[in-house]
Write a protein that binds this DNA or RNA. Structure first.
Lengths: 152, 152
DNA sequence: TAATACTTGACTAAATCACTTGGTTATGTG
DNA sequence: CACATAACCAAGTGATTTAGTCAAGTATTA
């Protein structure tokens, strides 16, 4: 199993996008600042998210990214998968050749854990996260800080 | 979250130990061969398992390792924890300073996933694994191959 | 047509993984 | 007592991955 900042960044960034999903597309630079992620790194992640159809982009002045699907159609599992992180835990990736071309002693255990984790992450969408009070509260704080810095 | 071969090796090796837990202690070399793990690498893992009180050892000829606890007292979570792998997924390790000294947008999500995985791994012991038919079957195959090679 | 914004590819320092090497120390057996 | 055995220990190492940076684009639109 591999769940690192890459996957967390992607989920945070998409949630930020969902929370600022008005008429206008969202600048990646703003997301980067609010979520404290390097812009160029975020660009790489969004290029993957776009390839997987989770976001759409528009170029030029006033351009940016927006969700390509409804928030309740984007599961956390989808996001993590899109940025190349695998939820798989087994060595053989399900192929049952974990040890000398045979299933290792604990093959079934890891498969079971796989199932648990993916069904958990499949069952939660961006919409679910938005519904939770904490998220809105945290997002407001982030927006406040953002406005404080950028007001002229 | 970090679950790699280290944790899988440790669980496989301890399960092997549990399955060969007769009067005599078990040679690490035999475990290494049956489970197809480098001996010296396994030694490193067992040194950690011993420090955490999961196994006891006896030196000299006829020495080896045995379980220090009953199989139903050793959970998978304990084993993984003992070899330094962390089940924690959050960046802040629960400290809620994941982003600019505040909780990040998805802090609660990762904490929840943490809970899911650890309660799953806490709820399964070596004894549980032994009870499953597949494990015994696989172990018998491993023993058969082992004996084939070592009979004189 | 200049400014804005997305796109791509190559590169990199640091960390981690999965070991290997090369020993030392304790213990039971002949 | 010598010696084989097997646990114990420290350090190093090549490959891979992470989390980025840097540089040079291309497309869009005010």
């Amino acid at each position: 199993m591999k769940l690192t900042t890459k996957g967390r960044y992607a989920v945070n960034a998409l949630l930020d996008l969902a929370l600022h999903n008005n008429k206008k597309p969202v600048h990646l630079a703003d997301v980067a600042e609010r979520q404290n992620i390097s812009l160029t790194y975020l660009e790489q992640l969004f290029s993957k998210l776009k390839r997987h159809g989770l976001v759409s982009s528009s170029r030029g002045p006033g351009g940016g990214y927006r969700l390509a699907l409804e928030a309740d159609e984007i599961s956390i599992a989808k996001i993590i998968y899109s940025v190349d992180e695998t939820i798989d835990i087994t060595r053989c990736h399900g192929k049952q050749n974990c040890q000398k071309d045979q299933r290792c002693l604990t093959h079934d255990l890891w498969m079971e854990l796989n199932m648990h984790v993916s069904s958990f992450l499949n069952g939660i969408t961006l919409f679910d996260l938005i519904q939770r009070n904490n998220v809105k509260h945290v997002a407001q704080k982030q927006d406040f800080a953002f406005v404080q810095i950028h007001k002229h």
